[in-house]
Amino acid sequence: MLPYPILSLCLVLMWLLLNGFSLGHLLLGVLVAIFAGWALASLRPDKPKLKKWYLLPKLFGIVFVDVIRSNIAVSWLLLKGKRRKDSSGFLLVPLEIEDPTALAIMAVILTATPGSAWLEYDSGDKTVLIHVLDLIDKETWINTIKQRYEALLMEIFA
C-alpha cells in the first residue's frame, strides 16, 4: 500500500506544517501522501538503498556547520576585495560513490555551500569537475571532499 514510506511520511509532515495540525488535516494529508506515493511508484524511480539512515543527521550537522563556515570565509574573501589572481580554479576530483541518490546529495551539498560548485560528473571516468573560488591547495580540497562527505555518503548508501 505504501511503496515509499519515508516519502509519504515526509509529505504528511509537510502537509501538517503548512496547514497547522488538526484531525481533518491529518486525514487529508495521509490521503495525499498515499496517492502521491502511488504516483511516484508508477514512475518507477530507482529505490535509494538507505543502509545506515541514522547517519543522516550527522551528515546534516556537518553540512550545516560547513555552510556557516564557508559563508564567513566567502564573505570575508569578497569584502577584502584585493585577491590574488588565479586563486580560483577548476578541480577534477575522482569519486568512488556510484549511487545516483548519493551523487545527487553530494552535488547539492557542494553547490549549496558557498565557494564550491559542482559542474560536471562523468560516470564513465567516475570523476567530477568542480570549481572552487579559493583554490589554494588542490590536495587539501580533494581530501576534504572525500573524507568529509564521500566517506559518510558511502556509509549511508552502502
Binding site: V67, N71, V74, S75, L78, P114, G115, S116
Partner: peptide, 29 residues
C-alpha cells in the same frame, strides 16, 4: 548583509565561474 555581500561579489568578480559562487551566500546563509 550576507545577501548584499553576495550581490556585491556577483557584480565585482571577474569571470563567470567565480561569479557563480557569490549568490550562493544569499541562497544559503
Amino acid at each position: 548583509l550576507l545577501t548584499l555581500i553576495g550581490t556585491i561579489g556577483f557584480l565585482r568578480l571577474p569571470t563567470f565561474y567565480e561569479r557563480l559562487h557569490a549568490p550562493t551566500l544569499g541562497t544559503s546563509g
